[in-house]
């Protein structure tokens, strides 16, 4: 009989780092609930940081961000069958879109909170998010609109690189490209296309 420790909450934690995202996604779609856990483990930290960069300072309490991200991930995994994202890039940009909507809701909610109304000086601005600070809220919104006009490949390449900090090697893997070089080329074309779209929308 193989040796094993006492039972614990996750029956196969050792697989969390090795099984491919595509394979885990296929298992979740097939109804294998055990595959949710490693997916959660893999993407929670990445999405947590992503959200951290986009939430206003006041709403950015670490615990809040964790809850927001974890809820979003769980909900997304519960609805996976409806969306069928097969490759990592599609999965991550799908999660990112849901999370973006959540972040917007969160900011709207923070503005509406009645207890804040009495503290007039604190109501008006929740404070800029780190990314707003870096490139401006207006530009962030322009970027989002431009992104929506790109092809799926282009959009995913940009999201993976600029928002999640993936290397060209990682992008190649996440988007099913043959090499890092192929991914670099795709990314270059995607960035120029986005620059054109942004320029035209001016």
């Amino acid at each position: 009989m193989p040796r094993s420790g006492p039972p614990h909450d996750d029956s196969h934690p050792q697989f969390a780092g090795s099984e491919s995202t595509a394979s885990l996604l296929a298992r979740v779609r097939g109804g294998d609930l055990d595959a949710r856990e490693p997916l959660l483990k893999r993407y929670l930290p990445l999405l947590r940081r992503w959200a951290h960069g986009r939430l206003p300072a006041r709403a950015r309490d670490m615990a809040d961000t964790d809850d927001l991200v974890q809820n979003t991930l769980l909900r997304a995994l519960g609805r996976l069958e409806e969306f069928e994202p097969r490759r990592e890039g599609a999965f991550l940009s799908y999660l990112r879109q849901i999370l973006l909507n959540q972040v917007r809701d969160e900011i709207r909610r923070a503005h509406r909170r009645p207890e804040r109304e009495s503290l007039k000086d604190q109501v008006c601005d929740e404070g800029p998010s780190p990314l707003d600070q870096a490139i401006g809220r207006e530009t962030m919104q322009r970027y989002e609109r431009g992104l929506a006009q790109l092809s799926q490949d282009h959009r995913e390449a940009i999201i993976l690189r600029l928002e999640f900090g993936y290397s060209c090697e990682e992008i190649a893997e996440a988007l099913g490209r043959s090499s890092a070089n192929a991914a670099r080329q795709l990314l270059g074309r995607a960035l120029v296309r986005l620059a054109q779209v942004l320029h035209e929308s001016e």
Partner: peptide, 19 residues
């Protein structure tokens, strides 16, 4: 176009700084 690309570069760098 260069301005737009530069903005995108800044965005990527800001993301890296956050994480």
């Amino acid at each position: 176009y260069l301005d737009e690309l530069r903005m995108l570069e800044t965005m990527g760098a800001a993301t890296a700084a956050v994480s």
